[in-house]
Design a protein around this nucleic acid. Structure first.
Length: 937
RNA sequence: GGGUGCUUAGCUCAACGGUAGAGCGUCGCCCUUACAAGGCGAAGGUUGGGGGUUCGACACCCUCAGCACCCACCA
């Protein structure tokens, strides 16, 4: 074996092996277990969030697969309507074509070509991380099967009146020229202005001042509104005002939505371009005057001078005209929330259009109940509140998009404006009895991408066909996803899943946090702090990293700042940490309930060290057993009769493995990934490597031990490592597979060429029984050596220097342990002698339990060093003793705390004071040096 | 305006109401034949502030402050 772990040498090889051997497909007759991959966008590049999420899903799936589950990880890709169409249009423009002038079929062909050419980049990246999806079942949301599910659902909802078409004010993106749903709009505070405009009151010489952030919409005003109780304006209610620049009179109305405190207390009402005003318009039966084209240019409703002007230009022109007429009262700076389309960052324009909607009320109720009744469980539970809040206030869902890339709406219109919904034109002609002469035009719009995503858990399993997969894997076991798509996706899957299958789509939803950079910033291209998970896996040189981060920036001016911060943070580029180290980092980052996960490169470094540690431990074990027949024939687990004798180091390490296994099982059952990772690391490093391996070395080198005893040690070395690697596999699949093969060979159980650790059984707790005696003994040994090493280190005695150690006192048990572990103590403690002896002269002193240890210092060091050390030890003891005394002095503690706790505290107090006495005595004795005449206490 | 999460060692994070730990970094000693990507030891904490509940609070309650996010129609 190489001296160092080199992930790049083994990871790709093993993934190819697994895939070729078909290890990812569900197998066996075990309990079905299924996770649906949140389908990434075809346009997507794998980012840290994906990598994090995939790591957790893969861990769950691999563990279930090993534990006998019939595990399916269903994957696929989302067509991502708007995102993809934008990318494709961008590409076409780069090639000198103008997508807006293209035919529908032509653009769709370009989109499909693009999907074929680069659409599975992200799945290749997932493979690199070791994701064990069943690729043979991969789906694309525009595939035929998906389409037929979408069609069925649309028709059924329409039949029941849960899908309807209506004219409504919707969020409109004028750059895309399509409606977007409420969820796709986000409002951020931005700097703006508040303009105060004067409206002349008809029949008077007065003007009313109106405050607005959007003066250009004045051209679409159909009323002014004031609060009914507002004394300043009361007398004008019922009167009429003249809209400046337009020759129009509008009513002055009263409505209590107006806040008299804000602005001037008088509001212009533009029902066609503001959601609030739209509601006011409905209440007061005001006309809707739409002044914008779909591109947000002023249309023919505007006075001729303004027609054709883009929103922004229109604002300037209107303000200029108002100023000229003296109707612009004043301008104030004002911060307010600007609604922008999340895709394009364009300001959304409320626009009155005909769209298709899902009536969500009747679907929301069962979805609420499913969570209330625990049929779907959010983990952590705190997300229930968010989910309920949204569903209880849910608005109808606008599902039509004025795009071409997506599921086309199955509706046809006649010339007279009749709407027919059906499976196909032929089918509905027949059903509606339309003659072939009747002209039918299909709705050009497509469905919101999330409509097909909402069906993902059952459409991927074959629905509407009642397939075997649907029967065994639906409802799926757990959904792993981020909180950002609870509304977009999770809630809608629950609504439509319940509606069409009568069952919840998944029993549990694990909600994870958002991966941020180490300073808590969101990773974004413009900040230049994006980490590509594959760069962490395979490494990247500084120059390509700088280039990657600074090219194709939205604001090229950011480049110098990004370049210098990148050079500062990664002066050497990023080394190849390997997929296993990255996965382990994500796993240990996944504590429950945290919303922000800061990714720090130091952690992945530590995890690569861990991988290296395992690599080398295996290297040692294989060396130690080679040619010694270390294995047991066939590598079968030992039966009870073959268990190591109680009280041996072998019994100890097996018991410790059993504890680690139990802790990992329960951590994973509760989705405590971080705890599981911690236990895994702790066992391997602190117990197996630091102690068992070291003890085994001593046993194997001990001339007094017989061949059978040594064989048992070698066997245990291998056996624990083998079981540990099975346990570690879901966390670090590549390295564990690589090492496991070698270990199995050493055990005399050479795996078949096609076999894989992936399909080995998950370790069973019964095989690793507790060993209380051995565990107590090793704990004592660790304390003993710890005390010895501390004396040595703090007296600056070279670690390698062989010294004698004297001991005295100790309980019977401690003396037995001492004799039992004598050989190990001599070797690990670097001692040249260990003998019972009363107090001696110049010596460092420590207490282990009841036993006093003395390390002679004569001529080696300055006794003052030891005195200083003792003083510090005594201070520590004193602090603990005082806190113990304080507790025991508290009458309430004695009466109310659990008796066993009180007892423990009393015992502790006795031990502490004895230890204090002994060490104090030693301190005095040392101070009295030279001279060895002292009574023995 | 409502709601949620967070604040613990220099940094990033853990800690069933019972002696606050880990990784990275720092300091000291060691190239001890698996691993210097290592070993051994050490330093470093009034757990954001204030109150309360409790025998006992990092944890539970109240409150203040700061950070982050979500929802909501304030022009």
């Amino acid at each position: 074996m190489e001296k160092h772990y080199q992930p790049e040498h083994l990871e790709r090889r093993w993934y190819a092996h697994w895939e070729q051997q078909g290890c990812f497909a569900p197998a066996g007759k075990g309990k079905p277990y299924c996770i649906m991959l949140p389908p990434p966008n075809v346009t997507g590049q794998l980012h840290m969030g994906h990598a994090f999420q995939n790591t957790l899903m893969d861990l769950l799936i691999r563990r279930q697969r090993m534990d006998g589950g019939r595990a399916l990880w269903q994957g696929g890709v989302d067509h991502a309507g708007i995102a993809t169409q934008l990318v494709v249009e961008h590409q076409l423009r780069a090639q000198g074509q103008e997508p807006r002038t293209m035919e529908r079929e032509e653009l769709l062909r370009a989109a499909w070509d693009w999907r074929t050419a680069s659409g599975d980049a992200i799945t290749r990246q997932m493979r690199r991380l070791g994701a064990s999806l069943d690729w043979s079942r991969e789906r694309f949301t525009l595939d035929e099967g998906m389409s037929s599910a979408v069609l069925e659902v649309f028709l059924a909802l329409h039949r029941e009146g849960l899908i309807y078409r209506g004219q409504r004010l919707v969020n409109w993106d004028p750059s895309l020229c399509t409606a977007v749903s409420d969820l796709e709009v986000s409002a951020r505070e931005e700097d703006g202005r508040l303009w105060h405009l004067r409206y002349p009151v008809v029949g008077t010489s007065t003007t009313l001042v109106v405050a607005t952030t959007r003066p250009e919409t004045l051209l679409g005003d159909t009323a002014l509104a004031v609060h009914p109780e507002d004394e300043r304006y009361r007398r004008w209610i019922g009167g009429r005002a003249r809209v400046p620049l337009c020759d129009r009179e509008i009513p002055i109305i009263a409505d209590d939505f107006v806040d008299p405190q804000f602005g001037s207390g008088c509001v212009k009402v533009t029902p066609a371009h503001d959601f609030n005003d739209y509601e006011v318009g409905l209440r007061h039966k005001l006309p809707c005057l739409n002044i914008f084209t779909p591109e947000a240019r002023l249309n023919e409703q505007a006075p001729p001078a303004f027609r054709g002007l883009q929103r922004g230009r229109a604002r300037e022109a209107v303000l200029q005209a108002l100023r000229a007429q003296g109707l612009l009262e004043k301008v104030e700076p004002h911060r307010f929330k600007v609604p922008r389309c999340e895709r394009t960052r364009e300001i959304v324009e409320p626009l009155l259009t005909r769209q298709w909607f899902v009536r969500t009320g009747p679907l929301a109720e069962p979805a609420i109940r499913a969570v209330e009744q625990g049929r779907v469980r959010f983990i952590p539970e705190s997300w229930n509140a968010t989910y309920f809040e949204w569903l209880r206030n849910i608005q109808d869902w606008c599902i039509s998009r004025q795009l071409w890339w997506g599921h086309r709406i199955p509706a046809w219109y006649t010339r007279d404006g009749d709407v027919h919904v059906g499976r196909s034109e032929e089918e509905l002609r027949q059903r509606a009895g339309l003659s072939p002469e009747t002209e039918l035009r299909r709705d050009p719009d497509v469905l919101d991408t999330w409509f097909s995503s909402a069906l993902w858990p059952f459409s991927t399993l074959g629905w509407p066909q009642q397939t075997g997969e649907l029967r065994s894997f639906y409802p799926t076991s757990v959904l792993v996803t981020g909180f950002d798509i609870i509304f977009f996706w999770v809630a809608r899957m629950i609504m439509l899943g319940l509606k069409f299958t009568g069952e919840v789509p998944f029993r549990e939803v694990y909600i994870h946090g958002l991966v941020l950079d180490s300073t808590g910033q969101k990773m974004s291209k413009s900040k230049g702090n994006v980490l590509d998970p594959l760069d962490l896996v395979d490494g990247v040189q500084l120059e390509p990293l700088v280039k990657k981060r600074t090219q194709a920036l939205l604001r090229p001016g950011d480049a110098p700042r990004i370049e210098s911060s990148t050079r500062r943070e990664f002066p050497e580029g990023i080394p190849a940490y390997g997929a296993d180290a990255l996965r382990l980092t994500f796993t240990s980052l996944a504590s429950l309930g945290r919303r922000e996960l800061r990714f720090e490169v130091g952690r992945i470094k530590g995890n690569r060290h861990f991988c290296n540690k395992l690599w080398n431990a295996t290297r040692y074990v294989l060396g130690a057993v080679s040619g010694q027949g270390g294995g047991n024939p066939g590598g079968k687990p030992r039966n009870a009769a073959e268990a190591p004798p109680p009280g041996t180091n072998e019994a100890w390490i097996l018991a410790r493995l059993g504890r680690a296994l139990g802790a990992i099982n329960s951590a994973l059952d509760e989705y405590r990934f971080d705890q599981a990772a911690r236990v895994l690391r702790h066992f391997a490093w602190e117990e197996y490597c630091d102690w068992y391996l070291e003890l085994a070395k001593i046993s194997l080198g001990d001339a007094r031990r017989g061949a059978a005893e040594k064989a048992a040690v070698r066997r245990t070395l291998l056996e624990v490592l083998e079981a540990f690697l099975r346990l570690a596999h879901p966390f670090i699949p590549f390295l564990s597979e690589e090492l496991w093969r070698r270990v199995q060979e050493a055990r005399g159980a050479k795996p078949e060429p096609g076999a894989s650790l992936m399909l080995q059984p998950w370790p069973r707790a019964e095989q690793f029984p507790r060993a209380p005696g051995a565990e107590a003994e090793i704990q004592w040994l660790q304390d003993f050596l710890g005390a010895l090493r501390q004396m040595r280190s703090e007296n600056r005695l070279a670690p390698g220097r062989l010294l004698p150690l004297y001991w005295s006192g100790g309980t019977a048990r401690e003396r037995t342990w001492l004799h039992h572990q004598e050989h190990a103590i001599l070797a690990l403690g670097r001692l040249r002698g260990l003998e019972e002896s009363p107090r001696r002269g110049d010596a460092a002193t420590a207490l282990v339990g009841d036993m006093l240890l003395q390390l002679p210092l004569e001529g080696l060091v300055d006794p003052n060093d030891e005195l200083r050390r003792l003083r510090r030890e005594l201070e520590k003891l004193d602090k603990r003793l005082r806190s113990s005394e304080q507790r025991l002095a508290n009458q309430d503690f004695l009466e109310r705390a659990p008796p066993e706790l009180v007892q423990r505290e009393q015992q502790r107090h006795v031990e502490l004071s004895q230890a204090m006495d002994k060490l104090q005595y030693e301190q005095l004795r040392l101070q009295d040096q030279p001279g060895d005449a002292k009574p023995s206490s």
